[in-house]
Design a binder for these strands. Structure first.
Lengths: 209, 209
DNA sequence: TAGATTGTTAATCGATTAACAATC
DNA sequence: TAGATTGTTAATCGATTAACAATC
């Protein structure tokens, strides 16, 4: 909530990776780590680690290093993992269901409340996830009655673009976008895109060069 | 194949996005575009577009701009989309199947040949995709008999790390990694990771700042 | 030809790395 | 205390933007 500006996108993109490594150190029972040790494991410079962390506060201690558990918790807070999020998934195709159940299983704090699909009757409910599939027609009224923080969009590009104003009116502030398009949103909304197709092209580029 | 070095990662990451916009211009029947026009649509500077494209060659023409169809084809070649790739998917869970069928449907040139799973009998074959699911035990011998370019990894982190040497010995040179781990590979192999969990954390960060 | 727009060099900006004084 | 390692400033490096001559 606090330190809004001054943090570059590059830094934010690195924070989850620090979080992952610290989580793994915790699992191994390691309680302290120096920036030098961590830099060797992560293949980044110790300088960058210290620089990055100090943007958010002095989490370390001279002569000692960083306490793994403490740093893990603090980065969790920075990333906003210390609260709950209500999600809906728009689309109920394979990718939509995979992402939805993935989030449900893996991520405490991120609660998938419903799916919405143009043809909800086409998709069968899996016992395990217990998340209802609604018709897309009901989305607007659903959002009137339910506070939703994040919408996962896994529908074709054109449909995705049409959803933005509906989500905006419905109070949704975050979009996790899997459609093959960029989405224009008002400044108070946030889009995080996962362009699988572009990722695959980057791989094929690297394979040939 | 040619211009190996000198191309930064940032540039490579932008190429698929140019490709997407050019594809969409083609669909609209637009045959020429200037860097200035494209920059407005894509929200980047015209300077950057020209700079990026010129790393690979002079695709434009002074006083005219760029021919959309030609540029689309050329970027396709740069990205390695002018050839075929044989893929296998390791894992047959929801995410694995979603990514596998996604690639199969969306991407000409990327052919999914097989799935491998620890418990292949657990997963039913979908009529539509017609891709067999093998036991993971058969992976090594399968790779002896079949040339595979890319392995999609959608299994837990620990299992993913154990796969690398097997894939290496089997001649696989590209890994599209969906596991929650970094993978160390020899220099002649390429890893492209999709860390969904980190993407979601970046979204939650932005929602709170 | 005149106008438009690229290709490319030079200037600026930002991000990464190095260095070291502060301090646990 | 001495040794280790952070926090932070300064130096370097790379990427982006601006400018403009070349040229279609």
């Amino acid at each position: 909530m606090l330190d809004n500006k001054g943090i570059s996108k590059a830094v934010i993109n690195r924070m989850p990776r620090y979080y992952r490594y610290l989580g793994s150190l915790m699992e191994q029972g390691i309680v302290r780590i120096s920036s030098a040790d961590l830099s060797r494991q992560m293949n980044v410079t110790a300088s960058q680690i210290r620089q990055d962390l100090n943007l958010f506060g002095g989490f370390g201690q001279q002569g000692y290093g960083y306490n793994v558990g403490h740093l893990y918790t603090e980065i969790g807070k920075i990333l906003g993992l210390d609260r709950e999020y209500h999600l809906i998934v728009i689309g109920a195709g394979r990718l939509a269901r995979a992402v939805g159940s993935y989030v449900g299983f893996q991520k405490r704090g991120f609660r998938v409340k419903a799916y919405f699909d143009r043809n909800p009757e086409k998709h069968t409910l899996n016992r395990e996830d217990e998340v209802p599939i609604h018709s897309l027609d009901e989305l607007e009224s659903y959002l009137k009655d339910n506070r939703i923080d994040i919408a996962v969009i896994a529908v074709p590009a054109e449909a995705a673009r049409l959803l933005v104003p509906v989500l905006d009116r419905g109070g949704v502030r975050g979009i996790w976008n899997f459609a093959h398009t960029d989405l224009d949103v008002p400044a108070y909304m946030t889009v995080q895109s996962v362009h699988l197709s572009e990722s695959l092209m980057q791989l094929s580029y690297k394979l040939n060069h």
